[in-house]
Amino acid sequence: MTARAKPSPAPPVDTGAVLRALAEVEDPELPIAITEMGLVHAVSVRGGAVRVELLPTFSGCPALEVIRDRVRRRVAALPGIQTVDVAFVFEPAWTVGRITEAGRARLREHGVSVPRAGLAEPATCPHCGSTNTVLENPFGPTLCRAIYYCRDCRNPVERFKPSSDEPLAQGR
């Protein structure tokens, strides 16, 4: 009597596999992966149960539900997954420091300025590189962006504005 070959079980999912899957989930408002934006706070895997904790840029952001649903669908498509639990958490606060270098380059190409260290530094124009910029409106097309104007190349500039205790650069 010969033992029948059992179908080989799917390899167990590990945190790395989940993170690689999350790197394919795009932000609904920008051409950048949520991992590049620094929205992923924690991933834990227990057997086939995955929990993903995310950070919002702003808690009132209307894209949060879309992000949650995309994450859930993408992770559920991995082999061997039984349950996916996705939730936003309040802390730590999301900051621009969480955006990766590759993410910054992509956002610059898209015309969005990302402060390097903090909101108080002068806004850099993503089009011409000038810091001769002035704040036009702390509110912009989304909750997480403010509008500046570049006095050198005369373009409007969107700049990331995380919720923060720091003052926004006013410009000259």
Binding site: S59, F90, E91, A93, D165
Partner: peptide
């Protein structure tokens, strides 16, 4: 706990309302 964290989050965000 998380209720205090929630209040800190809202407080940071609403700073922009007060500036306006």
């Amino acid at each position: 706990g998380s209720f205090a964290a929630l209040a800190r989050t809202l407080g940071r965000e609403e700073k922009y309302h007060r500036l306006f």
